[in-house]
Design a binder for these strands. Structure first.
Ligand SMILES: [Mn+2]
Ligand SMILES: [Mn+2]
Ligand SMILES: [Mn+2]
Ligand SMILES: [Mn+2]
Lengths: 220, 220
DNA sequence: ATATTTTTTTAGGTGCGACTAAATTATATT
DNA sequence: AATATAATTTAGTCGCACCTAAAAAAATAT
């Protein structure tokens, strides 16, 4: 089987997350995402290309192959299952699990993953609203967008987050903006793209940065 | 805090397991235990000595310090808690968990370990009968010995195993020699040190190798 | 006490995954 | 089209954890 190092798995995951249909992914983008240097990325891309996990041509950016895609999904599946476990079973908070899942996602054992999935009752979403790929890499399609994309005078329910850092999640908690909450977006300020919304009859303001990282489903 | 690499943790664990009060542990013994070469061990011992995790003098063998001891116990605690989790919650078999726990024992998060311990109900023994150190490194004293050490005509209850390999555990399963079972040792053959015992009124023979790896508590 | 064997260390090297600095190619600007 | 800027690759190093072969020390046998 494909036995990948932790570094190789992290590169595949980054490439998966950066991939937009059609476009090749740049060395710089990968370096930024992994907090490493472009020179290191170039070397790794050559190695992953040798293993047929992506197609690489000098200066042309990179595109994952079917195989690379599948392996990335396997890592993401583990990440999200472990996050679900940590929150639902071990009672950690949603801002405490990402770092730990970054470690657990590299544990190698198909048996473990399948038993964990069954034990958790085959969950479809992780604690941040991200879909959990099943055994075959399939995951539920999502119909959601950022708060920064919805129009004034619309109702929305919080579906998930785009940023997984503890700092951001704690901030949301403090604002009472957690998954499942519904609100009305009343206004967007042209000046700084900040947003005014009403939650539980209380008016509140959130910055553009926060609005861009909250995912919602539009209501009615 | 002490941030150790996976290799460093494995060396500390090996040294802990090989340690017999007073005696220094030889480079060869550690190499054999970790399936590596003596030259590699020497290098690592110097590094661990620099970190004050053991005392090392050329050619004199090695003794763990208080700190090295404590860190090793932390890794062993995690290993055994995860094994317990895998058997009791995920329903893996006792011969399927050791290899996975070898990976899980290196996950770094104090919060995770304490929550896992609580979730499992603070278990005292792992699936192989080994004691699980608590938060402070304390573990229940054990009063057991190998089958190869008990006298003919004595009754005993199986308490645990010394060998954790899948091959050995599956063999025991087949012989119905699992934890909690009681038997009478009726004879030991001088020729090959094999042992004759009665379990559920059935007489059976086990080799010296098997007898050396089964731990029992003597009854009455 | 000397010679042999075993254990341990040293010396020198490898692959991996990172780095910096410099060179090269691609893209944008004028 | 020539030039400036940005992205990417190459070249050369480094630390870690391993290796083999050879040297040195300790333990054992004669
Ligand atoms: Mn996450
Ligand atoms: Mn998540
Ligand atoms: Mn084990
Ligand atoms: Mn065990």
């Amino acid at each position: 089987m494909s036995n990948l190092s932790i570094s190789e798995e992290n590169y595949l995951k980054a490439i998966f997350h950066l991939y937009k249909h059609g476009e090749g992914i740049g060395t710089n983008a990968i370096a930024r995402h992994l907090d490493t240097k472009p020179a290191s990325v170039t070397e790794m891309l050559k190695k992953l290309a040798d293993k047929k996990l992506l197609t690489y041509e000098k200066y042309q950016g990179v595109v994952p192959t079917r195989k690379g895609f599948t392996l990335a999904l396997g890592v993401i599946r583990k990440h999200r299952l472990w996050e679900y476990f940590l929150v639902e079973k071990l009672k950690l908070k949603w801002d405490e699990v990402h770092e730990i899942a970054e470690q657990l996602e590299h544990i190698q054992s198909d048996l473990l993953v399948e038993q964990l999935d069954a034990y958790l009752g085959f969950p479809k979403l992780d604690p941040h609203g991200d879909p959990i790929p099943d055994k075959d890499g399939k995951m539920c399609a999502m119909n959601c967008c950022c708060v920064s994309e919805i129009k004034p005078n619309s109702n929305a329910r919080i579906f998930g987050v785009k940023n997984h850092t503890s700092a951001f999640l704690k901030h949301l908690e403090k604002l009472n903006l957690t998954i499942g909450k519904t609100f009305t977006l009343v206004n967007r300020n042209d000046f700084d793209q900040s947003v005014e919304l009403v939650l539980n009859k209380q008016t509140m303001h959130i910055s553009k940065e926060v609005a861009e990282n909250i995912l919602v489903e539009k209501l009615k």
